[in-house]
Amino acid sequence: MKKHYGFFIDAERCIGCFTCAMACKNQYHQPETVVWRQVYPISEEIYPYHERAFYSLACNHCENPTCLNVCPVKAYYKREDGIVVHEQDKCIGCGNCIRSCPYGAPRYNPEQKKAEKCSLCWQRVDAGLKPQCVQSCPVEALQIVDLATFDRPDTVQYPPGFPKHEKLNPSVRFVVPQLPKVIGREDI
């Protein structure tokens, strides 16, 4: 089967430490307000403790990427291995991909007046290295996987709190966070 890279996000292991997001900034030095990877706290409706469970998300490198489809200047292309690449020299900054992506992956770069997004560190991947966010994760909660062969049975594609867009078919798989048994104080 053809290789298809994606992110595996183990929210059960994730400690919401933002290391992945900062490692990305450290590698690419994006300007202020431009973040390729963001760590989203899961709301208390889903995980009852405030800011204690997270999804670390960047571009989901969808099988059918809306950014690619709606881009009028063909600034996006999908590589054989599934990585969705944005070519900035072609971008005219129309913002259509930013409006279109329900996962908020493309961001507007106010300096260059163009869009940009996570590249899955394809240069690093080509050089046999892990993407910087993956390498940085101290708890191995974030991994790059080949969806063609990935078959962990305990994973889901659309956990609660992650927008479901089957048409886009985002290349991500999640393990959802579990609750500890909580022994509360008797005196309050």
Binding site: C71, P72, V73, K90, C91, I92, G93, C94, G95, K113
Partner: peptide, 15 residues
């Protein structure tokens, strides 16, 4: 004025 690079607007016909 909506475009970051208005001079390249014509390339928007490409896709």
């Amino acid at each position: 004025f909506h475009l970051g690079h208005p001079l390249q607007a014509y390339t928007a016909l490409k896709h």
